[in-house]
């Protein structure tokens, strides 16, 4: 059924694409949330990523890889959005951060520990952050990680191991501060 939806979406059937993407909307939104840090940006980034997924749907080889392929596009879209945001002035950056405290129900920050943890994740490099978000926050399997990052399974294991150690060091550092 999903393969049929994928085939129809490839031909430009937007309703079919809507049905195809619906089960993954929450995943895409949550990945965007982990990168962007606030609900508004996460929503925009997630919808931007979903449009990119639709426009590039012909590049998706089969439904078996659809989840990892969509995650890859979402990660790239989130990183692009982060870069755009970084280029903006510090004032604009503060405007983005302001709603986090004003509207806590729309942010991923629930308490201080989680906030510290998220800060530590965001302090990691892009590759390590992606692995932690996808594996430890979104529950991707190692095979899906390999598909998403385009790396070999063994490489993914060792990189993820290093990423977790780096995260622990980052948390230690922030506690010492």
């Amino acid at each position: 059924m999903s393969e049929i939806l994928l085939a129809r979406a490839r031909k430009g059937d937007k309703d079919a694409f809507g049905q195809l993407i619906y089960p993954y909307e929450r995943l895409i939104y949550n990945i965007a949330c982990k990168y962007m840090g606030n609900a508004e940006d996460a929503k925009d980034t997630a919808q931007e990523a979903m449009l990119k997924i639709y426009l590039n749907i012909k590049s998706c080889r089969s439904y078996a890889t659809f989840k990892a392929w969509s995650a890859k596009i979402t990660v790239n879209a989130s990183l692009d959005a982060l870069r755009k945001r970084a280029r903006k002035s510090a004032e604009t950056l503060e405007e983005h951060q302001a709603p986090e405290t004003d509207e806590p129900e729309h942010t991923a920050i629930i308490n201080e520990d989680v906030r510290n943890l998220k800060d530590a994740i965001n302090a990691l490099g892009e590759d390590q952050r992606t692995l932690i978000i996808l594996r430890d926050l979104e529950g991707f399997s190692y095979a899906e990680l390999a598909e998403t990052t385009g790396a070999a399974l063994g490489t993914v294991k060792s990189r993820l191991s290093r990423a977790r150690l780096a995260l622990r060091e980052q948390i230690d550092k922030s506690w010492r501060l």
Partner: peptide, 13 residues
Amino acid sequence: EFMEKLRGQAKPE
């Protein structure tokens, strides 16, 4: 909201 945005898009490239 996404479906609304999607309707304004062209066919996949």
